[in-house]
């Protein structure tokens, strides 16, 4: 069985018990994706599968047959940071950095969800256009814990990256 990771095909032949997270880290050497809790409770393992953010600790690699996975290694490069990455650097959106790959992947997924008009628990209107206020961002990013408590800077970084993107698109 095969899955695509950051655009490259990878063969998986391991133990069916292998989580997608363990396959990324141990099978593919992509250690950017972190293991915090291994139980869906922290978000450190967040990656994109077919463009949607998921917790890679709670799915099996073998279940992702044929799917396209994007990890932090597939987002930006040290020379050409993704706007989100650049904004995290500018705003001190991290201290130890352990949660950061998950935060960035999660934020990527969030922006796509918002662009598709997905409401959240704090949205007043279920059907309207989504405006990512600080309150919306906090709710939508609540699946990514930060033990260092960089939360307010993370919200600032995402807000800035989002506005930069809007200006860029206009």
């Amino acid at each position: 069985m095969q899955l695509t990771i950051n655009g490259t095909a990878h063969e998986f032949t391991g133990d069916p018990r292998t989580s997608l997270l363990d396959f990324l880290r141990d099978g593919c050497g992509l250690t950017g994706t972190k293991k915090g809790c291994d139980h869906g409770q922290c978000g450190a393992c967040t990656v994109l599968v077919n463009g949607q953010r998921v917790n890679s600790c709670l799915t099996l690699a073998i279940m992702q047959d044929g799917h396209a996975v994007t990890t932090i290694e597939g987002i930006g490069t040290p020379d050409a940071l993704d706007p989100l990455q650049a904004a995290f650097v500018r705003h001190d959106g991290y201290q130890c950095g352990y949660c950061t790959p998950g935060q960035i992947c999660s934020a990527k997924g969030m922006l796509a969800e918002a662009a598709n008009g997905w409401a959240s628990f704090v949205s007043d209107n279920l059907e309207g256009q989504v405006e990512l206020s600080a309150e919306e961002i906090r709710e939508r990013m609540s699946g990514n814990l930060c033990r260092c408590g960089a939360y307010s800077n993370i919200v600032d970084a995402i807000t800035e990256a989002m506005q930069a993107e809007k200006v860029g698109a206009a």
Partner: peptide
């Protein structure tokens, strides 16, 4: 929308 998180609800 009151349950779990976007990541979990996506799965």
């Amino acid at each position: 929308l009151a349950g779990a998180t976007f990541q979990l609800r996506n799965m």
